[in-house]
Design a protein around this nucleic acid. Structure first.
Length: 343
DNA sequence: GGACCGTGCTCTCATCTCCC
DNA sequence: GGGAGATGAGAGCACGGTCC
């Protein structure tokens, strides 16, 4: 039988008010009483009832993030690291991070239930779209949220994002420096804002390097491993003279599929084909000592920390120091990039 | 179908106690 | 007696259940 505030106050011979205030650390309760209450709460295993607290405070002490199992967001190591940083920062404020799985790619009904049911105090919108109905819905509702990524018109709401055009530019520059001229590009659907910006960045970087872009070497996929795998098979099916010598993949889930297909075809990364993957591939995902060259976030964990701080400020109705946070990516060399194989 | 109650907690304001 | 600090009473929160 769980101990509630009433039980605890009866045990101590104090009113529920004083016990509540003592546990909340109010200075108008004497330090001796606060300590006595704290010890009794510990001894009796008292845990505040979250539902009652929510009713009293009008607060859920939780932040939500919705993901769609139709994609492999939870298979994305960077995304998981971001979640860890976010959860850690929220936890420090006694706030939970709730992950809600949408049954389809249409996440709006889940958003609606979370907002109208007051299940959370704020939401983090991940993997933003160019035109994002979730952002519109939250703006119309006046519900606090932070977007992990921008939209086509990134104004009027707080966001945290990376310079996606720079991501592709760094990847192309690294491959051009290694001597590549025929570079393929595999991207996520362009309705994702990050994919659109990285795609634009790739085209701009190729233009700047005065290199041709073969439309057959720009392949659209999805945020799934099998899409990266299929894209690789498509590139490998090209006649040898037309086949690119290097590939940039704009996301690490597709990148894993791409690597799997290249290895299955007996290719040596960095020799027969060079590869740069956005967001990077953890070493323990691969085998054979492959270190995949990557363009990465400084650390995904710290990104989650930053988003967590923004969300906490919103929940506490404090002004955001920096409502729009744009971070610069970095190129991390690896043995998946080498000079183009002679033909 | 409407009124009322119960749930567990926090908040505001009133009251009590102590000490100078 | 008055001020400061400690404590308590009661309202109110959202919503489901019960009663008339």
């Amino acid at each position: 039988m769980p101990v509630n505030l009433k039980d605890l106050s009866a045990h101590l011979g104090l009113s529920p008010t004083t016990v509540s205030r003592a546990l909340s650390g109010y200075s108008d309760v004497s330090p001796a009483t606060r300590e006595r209450v704290r010890q009794a709460a510990q001894e009796l295993g008292y845990q505040p009832n979250r539902a009652a607290r929510q009713v009293a405070l009008g607060r859920a002490d939780a932040v939500g993030i919705v993901y769609s199992p139709a994609t492999e967001f939870l298979g994305n190591p960077s995304f998981l690291q971001m979640l860890e940083g976010l959860a850690r920062t929220l936890d420090e404020a006694g706030c939970d991070l709730l992950l809600a799985a949408a049954p389809t790619e249409d996440e709006l009904p889940i958003y609606d239930r979370m907002v109208r049911g007051r299940r959370v105090d704020a939401l983090v919108v991940a993997h933003t779209l160019r035109e994002d109905p979730r952002i519109r819905y939250l703006q119309d509702s006046g519900f606090p949220f932070v977007a992990y990524g921008r939209t086509a018109r990134a104004d009027g709401f707080p966001w945290f994002d990376f310079d996606n055009e720079a991501c592709s530019r760094l990847a192309v520059q690294a491959l051009v420096a290694a001597g590549h001229r025929m570079i393929a590009y595999v991207h996520a659907p362009l309705h994702y804002n990050f994919a659109f910006q990285r795609h634009a960045g790739f085209l701009a970087a190729m233009r700047k390097a005065r290199l041709p872009v073969d439309p057959a070497c720009v392949l659209a996929g999805s945020l799934e491993r099998r899409a990266g795998y299929a894209a690789a098979r498509q590139l490998l099916a090209m006649p040898a003279a037309q086949r690119p010598t290097a590939v940039v993949v704009d996301n690490n889930i597709g990148g894993i599929g791409m690597i799997r297909a290249l290895l299955d075809a007996g290719l040596r990364l960095g020799h027969d084909m060079s590869l740069v993957v956005n967001e990077g591939i953890p070493e323990d995902t691969l085998f054979g000592g492959i270190e995949v060259a990557a363009v990465t976030q400084p650390t995904a964990f710290e990104s989650g920390r930053s988003i967590g701080r923004m969300v906490r400020a919103l929940v506490e109705r404090q002004p955001l120091d920096e409502p729009h946070q744009l971070r610069q990516p970095a190129y991390v060399p690896g043995n998946s990039v080498g000079p183009p194989a002679p033909r």
